[in-house]
Design a protein around this nucleic acid. Structure first.
Lengths: 144, 144
DNA sequence: GCTTGACTTCGAGTCAACTCGAAGGTGTGC
DNA sequence: GCACACCTTCGAGTTGACTCGAAGTCAAGC
């Protein structure tokens, strides 16, 4: 006897899921179309979401926070095996750690700027030392 | 007796500055036009850059790394007084600190994913706990 | 003076990630 | 059946940060 297919729990329309998660309806539809966060479909074609979609949404959010493109998000979420995911993680980790370090530097700079009385942002010696003496090869800080 | 205007040291054309800094020539011209990194001009209209432009470039880079829009970069770099800059810094600092914390979480996740053998990225209990139990109000991680 | 490789401006294009409005379908309550 | 609030797709628009190509100028070397 084979197990019957589990009926997924799908209480949320696009609007409901948007309200629950803060992601705009247009974005949810866009993400579904783009394969980022696929939606279930009723017989009438309407999208439905359930609690099982929340983890993937969180992972989409985390990847976006890491500056991943949508291609990269799909890649990691839809990787055919753990090895592909592990490769992605191994590549991203040094990048993330480097970003953390540079954000620390930026935080120090901001702490200083918050109390600095110099007339020009670039004429402050303490700030210039922190900015112009990078710890090493400087990765691009911009996301994406 | 008033001091004579100092003659700025301007050894670099757009191409030279681009080669020195890694910023593409089109981007330097664009940044100049947008007021992000203003260039000096020779009598013939050609742009020239000097060592004095490097600190501002680094600050542009740092602000971009913080996810600032170009409007924000201009605002902080061209702020009329230290108080305006301090306000900007005071607003950005908590954001940066929050970003650091979330990147730490993401780094933990990536460390786990790098060794995880689960068949699906969202079916890993350790990862789901870290993602679904956020430390508090969760700011948007995306830059900008 | 000509050639060549740089420079300039200008208008438009590219890219990624959305967002919008039009047109039509669906389902509920009256 | 009608009204209304939702749903769908589709094509195009928006936004921000660039990037490109055309047309013309500038300057150095021959």
């Amino acid at each position: 006897m084979t197990e019957p297919d589990a009926v997924p729990d799908l209480p949320w329309t696009v609007a409901a899921f948007a309200a629950r998660t803060g992601v705009p309806p247009t974005t949810l539809r866009y993400w579904d179309d783009e394969g980022l966060l696929p939606a279930h479909r009723l017989d009438n074609g309407h999208r439905r979401y359930g609690p099982d979609d929340l983890p993937r949404l969180e992972m989409v959010r985390m990847c976006q926070g890491l500056g991943c493109t949508m291609d990269e998000v799909r890649l990691v979420l839809d990787a055919p095996d753990p090895a592909a995911r592990a490769r992605f993680a191994a590549e991203k980790l040094p990048e993330v750690l480097g970003r953390i370090e540079l954000l620390r530097v930026a935080a120090d700079v901001l702490r200083h700027v918050a109390v600095c009385e110099h007339t020009d942002a670039t004429s402050c010696g303490a700030w210039m030392r922190s900015v112009l003496e990078p710890p090493g090869e400087r990765p691009d800080l911009r996301a994406g």
